[in-house]
Structures are given as structure tokens and as C-alpha cells.
């Protein structure tokens, strides 16, 4: 049985202390309170409403569920754990995320997954159900980003401009046949075949689908593009030493 609190009836400090002390807690009426679930290590936090910026920053374990939209700088430098948002996310989602999973049911704003990375057993995973804004996966250094375009017509562009600029490791999967416009020549992009989808996406999509009660098979049946860094093209030739 989890503790329940109405965010509109307590001040922000009390709310945070409560969240920190309870391993299972449900917050309702959330409106703009910042830094909820920051650096949390375990337990379950359920939020209804619109939490403020910095939600789940440095998250280190446990689960956070949000029923509503989230704002900017969510899951910043997240290390481990799980965040599911049944709504949209603002800008700078999952900046420099190192591990754990973030599932967004709706769209993400600009700069989602910038400089996400992976280290040893830590593999950061970001799945966006709708579309993503410009600069998705910029500087991607590891981990996995998937954009599913669930409510978009087939063949839609799922990202804004400058997708994956400066990406040098990790993978981006887009559930469409439309290559992002102006994709850097330092990246490779191909349409995945059935076998590759099964190997790389099936587990991920099943997890995602179950989080929002969606049909995994139906999602998997769509076409997926895979974007990766081309190991033969680096930025080294830019420099001259005296």
C-alpha cells in the first residue's frame, strides 16, 4: 500500500521530504514542483499532474510513473532506474543519461537524448512514442534511442532538423521509412530487416508496450530505420598540429 499526497496541499519542501522518505508514494495534483524524484534509488513514485523541471534527474534506481505531461530537463544525467510518462516531454529530455530506461508515451521536445551514453553494464534507453524535436540524439555517445511515431501517418518524418549531429556511438531507431533530413555524412542509416529488428528491438518494444498497454506486435510490424556512427569517419582530420 502506498502513501498518498496531494501536492497542492503541502509546500514544496514537505513534498520532497515525503517523497524522499517513502519508498512507495503517490502524488496527485502536481503542478510545476521541480526536482521530484531527484537521485532516488529505489521504490515506486507515481505522479499525476504536471511536475516541474528537473524531474528524475540523477535517478539511480526504482520506478517513476507520471500521468500527465512533463516539462524540461527530465531524467538529466540519469544513472539507473525507470521512468514512464503517459504524456509529452519538454526540451532537453535525458541529457547525458548513462543508464536506466525512460519511456515517453507522447512527443518529446528539442534536444532529446543529447549525449546519452553507456558504460559497462549501464545502457541508457529512451523510447519516445510520438515524434521528437530537432537535435534528437545530438552527440550520442552510447545507449539506445527509439522514436515510434505511433500516431503518425506511415512514412512521416519523426524528428526535427539536425538529428544525431555529432553522434559517435550508440543507436537510434526510427519507426518510419523517412530518413531524417540533412543527416550527417558521418552517420550510416539503413532500413532494418526482420531478423535485425527481432534481435535489437523486440525486447525493448515489448517492455515499452507493456508499460502503456499497447500492442507490441503491431508496433514491431512497422518499418524501422537504424542510425549509427560510421566508424570510418571521425573528426580527427580537423586538426593540424604545429
Amino acid at each position: 500500500m502506498s502513501v498518498q499526497v496531494n501536492a497542492s496541499q503541502v509546500d514544496e519542501r514537505t513534498l520532497k521530504d515525503l517523497i524522499e522518505s517513502e519508498s512507495n508514494i503517490e502524488v496527485t495534483g502536481c503542478l510545476g514542483q521541480r526536482y521530484l524524484g531527484v537521485a532516488r534509488k529505489c521504490g515506486q513514485l507515481r505522479i499525476t499532474g504536471t511536475p516541474g523541471n528537473g524531474l528524475a534527474s540523477y535517478l539511480d534506481g526504482g520506478e517513476i510513473y507520471v500521468h500527465g505531461n512533463v516539462q524540461d530537463a527530465v531524467a538529466d544525467t540519469m544513472n539507473d532506474g525507470f521512468l514512464a510518462v503517459d504524456g509529452n516531454a519538454g526540451d532537453a529530455l535525458c541529457y547525458a543519461m548513462r543508464g536506466g530506461r525512460v519511456f515517453i508515451r507522447g512527443n518529446a521536445g528539442y534536444r532529446a537524448g543529447v549525449h546519452m551514453k553507456a558504460y559497462r553494464e549501464r545502457q541508457s534507453i529512451l523510447v519516445i512514442g510520438g515524434r521528437a524535436g530537432s537535435f534528437l540524439g545530438e552527440y550520442l555517445a552510447g545507449g539506445t534511442i527509439a522514436v515510434l511515431g505511433l500516431d503518425c501517418p506511415a512514412g512521416s518524418q519523426l524528428t526535427g532538423y539536425f538529428c544525431a549531429n555529432g553522434m559517435y556511438a550508440g543507436s537510434i531507431y526510427l519507426r518510419t521509412t523517412a530518413r531524417p533530413v540533412g543527416l550527417s555524412d558521418k552517420l550510416s542509416c539503413h532500413l532494418m530487416d526482420g531478423e535485425e529488428k527481432k534481435a535489437k528491438l523486440e525486447g525493448l518494444i515489448r517492455d515499452y508496450a507493456s508499460a502503456f498497454s499497447l500492442d507490441a506486435q503491431q508496433i514491431l510490424s512497422g518499418p524501422f530505420l537504424s542510425i549509427e556512427a560510421d566508424p570510418h569517419k571521425s573528426y580527427r582530420q580537423l586538426y593540424a598540429t604545429l
Binding site: 503542478l31 510545476g32 499532474g49 504536471t50 523541471n53 516539462q71 524540461d72
Partner: peptide
Amino acid sequence: SEEAAIRA
């Protein structure tokens, strides 16, 4: 600047 201000 933030959605929460509108929802307020």
C-alpha cells in the same frame, strides 16, 4: 515558459 503555469 512552463506548462505548469498554464495549468495553474
